[in-house]
Design a binder for these strands. Structure first.
Length: 652
RNA sequence: GGGACCGUAGCUCAGCUGGAUAGAGCAUCUGCCUUCUAAGCAGAGGGUCGCAGGUUCGAGUCCUGCCGGUCCUACCA
């Protein structure tokens, strides 16, 4: 609604300027610094000052005087040195909201593919992985809320070095036969077991460099899919993927399809992509130098300013001299498949039915009887991958471009984000040893190899435990199962909000104390505002009342009530959810959406404190306040639950 | 060496394509629970927006240089 008016305003001014001054001006519509200035502010007079050679203030005054009436707008005012402030007709605006005459969504056509999570299936998920998943999942929810069709992919690197290292641990270090590994998999927390084993194997390599041969042998075995090593590799990877799915579902994060690296190889995705790359001369064979015998992509393809004659040594190796393909090479093939450019497809089998009935599929190399949806073939692709891999992502896009797929390269977006590190204080708390140097740093990087980090499940458990204590003390009369449910919802809210409140390119120095906080700018604060709105309505019912018929609030009544600035500001804030989604989406910042939710909650909390609705005796005002509470509740709940993936508890 | 990002209140961070008096949260201090739950509300203090130039009606925002910090620049991913 708010957004609609903004557009209308823009259009009206542009049209007026074009018709009366012959100017094709870009009309900027801002929101005033102070709400007392009105709902919109246009700095148009400033930009016209040069062209018209007149003082901005004079231009603004002239425009305001000549501008024909705009529906829904009460007044245009000149302020400051030449701002045009816009005030809306409050009753008219509220009536439109009440009767639900919202604009229909007009989403772009075409499927959006969002790839996120992508955790190496060799150990438990940690806090850094959570940032990826929460960002990706929230972005997916934002797109879907805007009406886009979205497919969520979680790519599994099940044949890589990291899986191989855990296999080395099982086979060479622990000398476990397949049966014992299977028994371990059946135990709970198999991902935690692998977390430690992976760290041990890494340490073993450091102490015994010759042991690296085990890794080579294992990688080779896994790639060919034969023998004990390969069998353990597949068992481990599949089992860990299941654990990751469990962990992410605790945060209401789900996937549609799991493409796997093993199928990229077995189904000849890479071979086909390689053919095309060679044909188009996107890659070439190096004759001499350090990259002798490798197929490489010239630096000029992916690096700004690199000259055509840049040396072979600067090029990116795509196929190693031993004939094996690098991860980037496989990623190019995968990216081509995502856009439907490869002419090949995976086979799929069902992997998991989520508790809500959603079916997730996994890629396989054998046909399956069950019909799977059509995956891949997206119009836009977002890869949620941390910023350290931007170089690799540039190479992937360069690959598409070199093949002549300019449009796809354009729509191939690296949705990058900075890493999650640990605050020194939290390291101490977790017993992680710090060097003198580390102590002075603002943060310490986590390391899977060293086994340093905060495991996702541990963090979620801690949050639930803390929320549980709060819920228990406030609601000792509620059934235990119910208290656990509410505590879990609060924990999810706290965690998701914490990971979303930072913009993407900010390094998060994870601080346990801060993450466990439920006060101030946190998920529980926002949830609490929604719960308060629910409490009002529940209390009304408990006292034998019922919601009045809001249609009796006509424009005049609404205008009367909305003379109160507090009410008007809350209504305006709540009606901005569509506008907030729009701008968060165009800037690609889920943090903006989280911030909006927080601001809306703040506005409501102040309102809640100042105006006891149920005690209101004036019938018109009471009806109006109840409507305001209901409208706020709807907007906030939609923003929390649908867009941010944060559940709203029944009570707190 | 080359590339990218960052530097805003004591701390952690917002600040959309340049716009009105630079904002939150935490921490500190002061008030407010017989009311729809205080996970809350109201208020106070706290800033040379790293430094120096430039662009213009106007710069935290754009350009250049410097200082400080981080990441990338693998036949790992």
């Amino acid at each position: 609604m708010f957004h609609q008016l903004e557009e209308q305003l823009r259009a009206s001014f542009a049209q007026f300027l074009s018709a009366n001054y012959g100017l094709e001006a870009q009309v900027v519509v801002e929101q005033p610094k102070q709400s007392s200035f009105g709902e919109f502010a246009l700095p148009i007079a400033f930009s016209l000052a040069r062209q018209l050679r007149k003082a901005p203030k004079a231009i603004a005054e002239e425009l305001v005087a000549k501008m024909p009436a705009i529906p829904g707008v009460a007044a245009l005012e000149v302020a400051g040195n030449g701002y045009i402030n816009v005030r809306l007709q409050r009753g008219h605006y509220a009536r439109a909201l009440l009767s639900g005459s919202a604009a229909a969504l007009n989403p772009a056509a075409g499927k959006v593919i969002v790839e996120h999570t992508n955790i190496n299936p060799n150990k438990a998920a940690h806090i850094g992985h959570l940032r990826n998943s929460v960002l990706g999942d929230t972005f997916v929810r934002m797109l879907r809320s805007a009406g886009r069709r979205v497919e969520v992919q979680n790519y599994i690197d099940n044949t890589g070095v990291q899986v191989a290292d855990v296999v080395v641990g099982f086979h060479y270090l622990e000398k476990k036969p397949v049966e014992e590994v299977k028994a371990l998999i059946a135990q709970p927390k198999f991902d935690y077991y692998c977390w430690d084993l992976y760290a041990r194997t890494s340490q073993h390599y450091t102490a015994n460099p010759e042991a690296i041969q085990w890794r080579r042998d294992t990688l080779h075995a896994i790639e060919h899919g034969e023998g004990t090593l390969a069998e353990i590799g597949h068992l481990v990877a599949d089992a860990i993927v299941e654990r990751h799915i469990d962990t992410m579902w605790r945060l209401a994060i789900a996937y549609d399809v799991f493409p796997r690296e093993s199928e990229i190889l077995h189904l000849k995705f890479w071979a086909k992509a390689f053919e095309q790359l060679k044909e188009r001369k996107a890659v070439y064979l190096v004759e001499e130098g350090k990259n002798q015998g490798c197929w490489v992509m010239a630096a000029s393809h992916f690096r700004e300013g690199a000259s055509e004659a840049a040396s072979d040594d600067d090029a990116k190796v795509i196929v190693r001299s031993n004939g094996t393909v690098t991860y980037v090479g496989k990623d190019i093939a995968y990216q081509m498949w995502k856009f439907g450019l490869l002419g090949l497809d995976f086979h799929y089998k069902p992997l998991r039915v989520y508790p809500d009935g959603h079916q997730a599929w996994v890629a396989t190399d054998e046909p399956c009887d069950l019909p799977a949806p059509a995956f891949g073939g997206g119009a836009e692709v977002y890869n949620v991958i941390d910023s350290r891999q931007s170089y690799l992502q540039d190479v992937v896009v360069a690959g598409l471009r070199a093949l002549g797929y300019d449009k796809q390269a354009e729509h191939s977006i690296h949705f990058s984000y900075e890493m999650v590190a640990l605050s020194p204080r939290t390291c101490v708390e977790l017993g992680i040893p710090l060097s003198e140097e580390d102590r002075k740093r603002p943060y310490v990087e986590v390391s899977g190899r060293k086994g340093l980090g905060v495991k996702a499940d541990d963090l979620i458990d801690k949050l639930i435990e803390k929320a549980r204590a709060e819920v228990d003390s406030r609601h000792p009369d509620k059934a235990e199962a119910e208290r656990v449910r509410v505590a879990t919802q609060i924990a999810i809210g706290a965690l998701r909000y914490f990971l979303l409140k930072f913009t993407r390119n900010t390094v998060i120095a994870f601080d346990l104390q801060e993450a466990l906080s439920f006060e101030g700018e946190t998920g529980p604060y926002v949830q609490y505002a929604a719960v308060r709105a629910r409490n009002i309505l529940r209390k009304l019912e408990e006292r034998g009342g019922a919601l009045p018929d809001f249609s009796q609030l006509d424009e005049a009544a609404l205008a009367r009530q909305l003379q109160a600035e507090d009410f008007w500001q809350l209504l305006i804030a709540a009606s901005k959810s569509g506008s907030a989604l729009d701008s968060a989406l165009s800037s690609g910042e889920p943090a903006a959406m989280a911030r909006y939710a927080f601001q809306l909650a703040q506005a409501f909390n102040a309102f809640y404190h100042d105006y006891p609705i149920l005690a209101e005796e004036n019938p018109e005002k009471r009806t109006f306040l109840l409507w305001l509470a209901v409208y706020f509740k709807e907007q906030l709940e939609r923003t929390l639950d649908q867009v941010l993936g944060i559940p709203v508890p029944d009570y707190m």
